[in-house]
Amino acid sequence: MNITYKINEIVDVEQFINLLNNTTLGERRPVNDYNCIQGMLKNSNLIISAWVQDQLVGIARSVTDFNYACYLSDLAIDEKYQRFGMGKQLITLTQAQLGPRCKITLLAAPAAREYYKHIGFTQNEYCWTLDRHQTVTSLANK
């Protein structure tokens, strides 16, 4: 299998949606909201993609300052192409674009928790999220 990896190659919205639908991430991403997916791609500043000919088969989509923090928003590999080391290669290529002090952070899907541990990520119990419909509460109200 001949896989080509590309850095910041333009990824079409439909290609990305098709890839997500061929992974478990499709269940947790807004694949029916074209504008949201388009914004996800447009506003990512580091995208490493994997291709078999002209078919997108893997992606590592990140938002980063390249020096201190890199949030790996999506690591998606088409289910037909999993278990060939593509995820590790996408992460390795992502790291290669970052400065020496830059740390990759991600939120693991339930099915991927063991994968990240297996490839060397350290689990951090201090991650917090705030959904858009939630509001920040005042300490005075506590």
Rank of each mutant, 00 (worst) to 15 (best):
K6T: 09
I7D: 06
N8A: 04
E9L: 05
I10T: 12
Q15S: 14
F16L: 09
N22S: 12
T23S: 12
T24W: 14
R29T: 11
P30K: 12
V31T: 11
V31P: 00
Y34G: 03
C36K: 14
G39R: 14
N43G: 11
S44A: 15
S49N: 09
A50K: 02
W51I: 15
W51Q: 14
Q53D: 15
Q53I: 14
Q55P: 03
G58N: 02
I59V: 15
R61E: 08
V63Y: 03
V63M: 10
V63Q: 04
D65A: 04
L72G: 02
D74G: 02
L75H: 11
D78H: 07
D78W: 01
E79I: 13
K80Y: 12
K80I: 09
F84N: 08
M86T: 08
G87Y: 04
Q89H: 13
Q89E: 15
L90K: 11
I91G: 10
T92M: 15
T92E: 15
T94G: 03
Q95G: 02
C102S: 03
C102M: 01
C102R: 00
A109Q: 03
A112P: 01
R113E: 13
Y115K: 00
H118E: 08
I119D: 03
W128S: 09
H133V: 06
T135F: 09
